[in-house]
Amino acid sequence: MRRSVRGLNSIKVVTKKDGRQYKYRRVGSQLVALPDLPEHHPDFIAAYVAAGAVQPKPRHREGTISALCAAYLSSHEYRRMADSTRAVWRRTLDRISNDRGTAFVVDLRPDHLRKDIRALTPGAAQNRLKAWRSILKFAVEEGMIPADPSVGVKAQRGEVKPHRQWTWAELSKFREHWPLEAPERIAFEVIFWTGARCVDAVRLGWQRVDDDGWLSYVQVKTGGPATCPISVLPDWASTMEADQALFLASVPRDRLIWITTQTGKPRSVKGLSQWMSAAASSAGLPSDCTAHGLRKARAAALAEAGATASQIGAWTGHASLSEIAHYTRQADQKGVLGAKRERESGNTIAQFPKKP
């Protein structure tokens, strides 16, 4: 019985759905087709040897936009981004490389960039222009071009619709529809109470709660810390006792991770977001009731409860005052003013005497 010839490395076998197999030899970044023969067959060995003599094609021609995109993806600036941000930037740069990659960077002019973003939606155009500016700034710093052609180029501004904050009526309607033990309700209470993004919420559980009853974690998107009370409650947050009680009544005690699938596995970030939107629709809520809208609702609830900007930032993980202002803009202004007054004065404001 013949044995397979040893030493045939870099062979890739692709099996189609119908069972057919295709064999290739990997040469650099390309695949060279091999005959459908046993590896010990003389013709297969001859084809294998011939494939090894094929000169690898350069992946990116020097000086092109595709080469610039590849260089930027290997840069420190790109590597220091959060994983989720890197994924978005890679997709954007891959599209730029596919659409404009064969052109040379030194030939780029402002009107080329305007033409590139003109056919995109306002939001997509803004993101594309940000990517162009980043890689062209990198090109200037690396000495590839003398000046940045993106300077002065502006994308068309359209109406930006941020995630809408849930109303108290919508929060109550969701709770009325989904019972405490339902997976949808558990995810709802976790996201609403912690104010965590979906990318963080999928990782939260009892393993991150310390002996004093505080939940602490490092955010995936920003790398910054976030901390919120679980079994304790600060004095200033006493008006949120009902929300805390519902959260504690819903989260399971028999597993570490709170938000899981039916099989007990943690949910994916994208899956959680879409699943929560579907759960809101099933409860009869508008299509713009999203998981991120619960995060905004928590920030607003904290403002209404009398939390300072620093306290809101520590709870939700926001690092800047502008971010906190953005998320609390829809807070109940009467609640905010009343809570602030009580916190600063101890609610000792004298009442006007009644008329006799």
Rank of each mutant, 00 (worst) to 15 (best):
residue 238 S to W: 11
residue 228 C to G: 06
residue 235 D to G: 13
residue 254 D to V: 12
residue 239 T to C: 12
residue 238 S to R: 14
residue 256 L to W: 11
residue 253 R to E: 12
residue 235 D to R: 11
residue 280 A to I: 00
residue 229 P to R: 14
residue 272 L to H: 03
residue 225 P to F: 01
residue 238 S to Y: 10
residue 261 T to Y: 06
residue 252 P to V: 01
residue 282 S to N: 13
residue 251 V to L: 05
residue 258 W to A: 02
residue 241 E to W: 11
residue 268 S to W: 02
residue 247 F to A: 04
residue 275 W to H: 06
residue 227 T to I: 11
residue 274 Q to H: 09
residue 242 A to K: 11
residue 258 W to G: 03
residue 223 G to V: 11
residue 220 V to E: 15
residue 269 V to I: 06
residue 238 S to K: 13
residue 228 C to K: 07
residue 222 T to A: 04
residue 253 R to S: 09
residue 279 A to Q: 00
residue 261 T to D: 13
residue 245 A to L: 07
residue 254 D to N: 10
residue 245 A to G: 06
residue 254 D to I: 11
residue 262 Q to Y: 09
residue 255 R to T: 07
residue 232 V to M: 09
residue 252 P to A: 01
residue 272 L to Y: 00
residue 269 V to H: 15
residue 267 R to D: 02
residue 281 S to K: 12
residue 230 I to V: 15
residue 237 A to N: 05
residue 263 T to G: 08
residue 239 T to Q: 14
residue 248 L to H: 05
residue 235 D to T: 08
residue 238 S to D: 13
residue 237 A to F: 13
residue 224 G to W: 05
residue 220 V to K: 14
residue 232 V to G: 02
residue 266 P to F: 14
residue 269 V to A: 14
residue 270 K to R: 14
residue 221 K to L: 04
residue 251 V to N: 07
residue 222 T to E: 01
residue 263 T to W: 11
residue 270 K to D: 13
residue 225 P to H: 00
